[in-house]
Write a protein that binds this DNA or RNA. Sequence first.
DNA 1: TTGCAGTTGTACCGATCAGTACACGTTAGC
DNA 2: GCTAACGTGTACTGATCGGTACAACTGCAA
Lengths: 200, 200
Amino acid sequence: MNTKRVLTDRDSAVPALAEAFREHGFEGASLATLSKTTGLGKGSLYNFFPGGKAEMMDAVLEDIDRWFSEMIFSPLEHTVDPTSAVTSMMQEVAAYFRSGRRVCLVGSLGLNTAGEAFKDRVAAYFARWISALAKCLEAGKIPPVLAAHLAEDTICTIQGAIVLARGLGEEATFTRIIERQRAILLQSVARDRKISRFDG
Amino acid sequence: MNTKRVLTDRDSAVPALAEAFREHGFEGASLATLSKTTGLGKGSLYNFFPGGKAEMMDAVLEDIDRWFSEMIFSPLEHTVDPTSAVTSMMQEVAAYFRSGRRVCLVGSLGLNTAGEAFKDRVAAYFARWISALAKCLEAGKIPPVLAAHLAEDTICTIQGAIVLARGLGEEATFTRIIERQRAILLQSVARDRKISRFDG
DNA sequence: TTGCAGTTGTACCGATCAGTACACGTTAGC
DNA sequence: GCTAACGTGTACTGATCGGTACAACTGCAA
């Protein structure tokens, strides 16, 4: 079917677009760049994405959202084993961000005015991530307020680790920080609420 | 003296340039933008910064470096009172980044290829900040390894808090995270090393 | 008043930008 | 093999990019 093939080609271009946007930013990624990295001519690009760069970024964000929903958010929200859910989240995240070599596109979109058109989507991404993790921690018997703080701190730490590792040019930094945060989370869940503890 | 006036005008343009770079990024800040925000015509801009945008960014980074050296790094490195040094650092940082509304230019430079020309400076900024804080914590009798981890975590948290607060569009997020991190640092210093503790 | 260094607005450069138009394959249905 | 729709390369648009050239203006010193 033609329709099928169109969608297939369009979809298969999205990962390359995502990588280009990550590396150069939304403004910095020119159509020439996007054309080169996708292997599609300008004509094809505008055939698949009539809305231009904005529609390409939209498609990329939708793809990211789908991936995170399936691999990160849903498992956290529906787990019955918080310890393994946390472990697997940290593992997936480290792999996804290539130990800090890969930038978080959503995070970087929030940093400058170029991403203003996508700010609702950016906010939704972070909000969902934090609430999904908090829900998982609550399932591990952590009181709601502390769970919310731990979740917030964790997403914050992941984003900070990317910035820091990129800035220092050392992925070891990323690995170290993530590992410590993982330990904090597991320790909190494992403690099993025997002791009511300071929660800021 | 004329020379004096030249330098004064050049220097007085730097904060406006910094704000423009922060808001639009290095590539996103066009000469038209820079001209408007500084109030200087293109002619004046190139008179003061013959090297163009790159020299403007260099001047901005130098200014940032000077400010951080004086207000953040030096106090941390030479303090005799770690508790108040940490408190004042967190306070200065929160004010500087406007509770997360203001982006960390150095951090955002590290995120995409546009900032590649400045990567040594970016790396030096983070390295110095971490080592200055670690030194301060060591002065508070925290063992070197733990101090290094705490310092790394803290700078990571600050950067992450900016990303998260910008992404969510909520400066309360920034304030909360910073406050918790401040508590962790003060608690570590105050404990005064009575108990040897897990340090990741 | 004259001269001069420092400063500034403006016109201009070639390159590149995002986006459009369209003609040329290519392929599928018949 | 014919046709028609789909996919794609290419040439083009006007706007804007970073950067240059330079003439006009400024204020100060003699």
